[in-house]
């Protein structure tokens, strides 16, 4: 199994209420698990804990059989990436996009050429012209595709998709989903897809779960 989660619980304040309670699931390479639920049900919390943004209060998470501990380091850090809901704040507003896109090259010491980056971005529908601009000058769909491209640049094996299309129009949404499917086919990436839209989850993947009141179950 690529990702195994067992008995995951989270409270944000000591003695505060449990936001999610005893969550367990497993996702294999090239597979997707979709979790849907209303806002406030705790679905983003699960994703952000998996991506190593917050520590879990209780429970165990394993990547390729190795237990993950907070904060994530080394190999595990590279293997798990996340795509957020709001593309307009996914990039540093003070940097031109080309500089934001250079970050993963720098942090992971990947060989960088401008031409290489442009070629890589072509399939994401992002062109050199976009890269010279600031985030505020691009549409939500363009930014989200660029954010996906940035996450995939470091070749993670697992991607947390935290409502990546809920702020987008339907066409941009379909384009992102289409890209996600292609990438999964090519690289056998595992996805945790989080959304409030049941129809979207059902279209995207065969295994979906409902998160309600902090617990996970099969939807009716």
């Amino acid at each position: 199994m690529l990702i195994e989660v067992q008995g995951l619980s989270k409270r944000y304040r000591p003695r505060g209420p449990l936001v999610v309670e005893e969550i367990s699931f497993a996702i294999d390479r090239g597979e997707t698990l979709a979790i849907f639920g209303d806002s406030g049900s705790g679905k983003s919390t699960i994703g952000q804990i998996l991506a190593g943004i917050y520590p879990a209060t209780a429970g165990e998470m394993r990547l390729d059989g190795q237990t993950l501990s907070y904060p994530l380091r080394g190999h595990a850090r590279r293997q798990i990436q996340i795509l957020f809901q709001h593309p307009e704040v996914a990039f540093n507003p003070r940097l031109r996009l080309i500089d934001s896109m250079r970050e993963p090259y720098r942090l992971f010491r990947l060989p960088y050429t401008r031409q290489g980056l442009c070629d890589y971005l072509e399939r994401y529908g992002i062109y050199e012209e976009h890269l010279g601009r600031f985030p505020a000058e691009l549409s939500g769909g363009e930014l989200q595709r660029l954010a996906l491209a940035r996450a995939m640049l470091i070749e993670p094996s697992f991607l947390v998709l935290d409502e990546p299309t809920s702020m987008l129009d339907v066409i941009s949404q379909a384009q992102i989903i289409h890209l996600l499917r292609e990438i999964q086919k090519e690289r056998q990436v595992g996805y945790l897809f989080i959304s409030h839209d049941r129809a979207l989850c059902e279209r995207f993947c065969p295994s979906i779960r409902l998160l309600e009141g902090g617990t996970l179950r099969e939807p009716m």
Binding site: G125, Y127, E129, H130, E137, L138, S139, G141, E142, R145, D169, V170, I171, Q173, A174, Q175, I177, H178, D197, A199, L200, E202, R203, F204
Partner: peptide, 22 residues
């Protein structure tokens, strides 16, 4: 048409190219 076809319940089709830079 592309918008309606892109709805999840109508198949989530992405059969239109990316918009060129604004």
């Amino acid at each position: 048409r592309a918008m309606l076809e892109a709805l999840p319940e109508h198949g989530l089709h992405a059969n239109m190219g990316f918009a060129p830079p604004r």
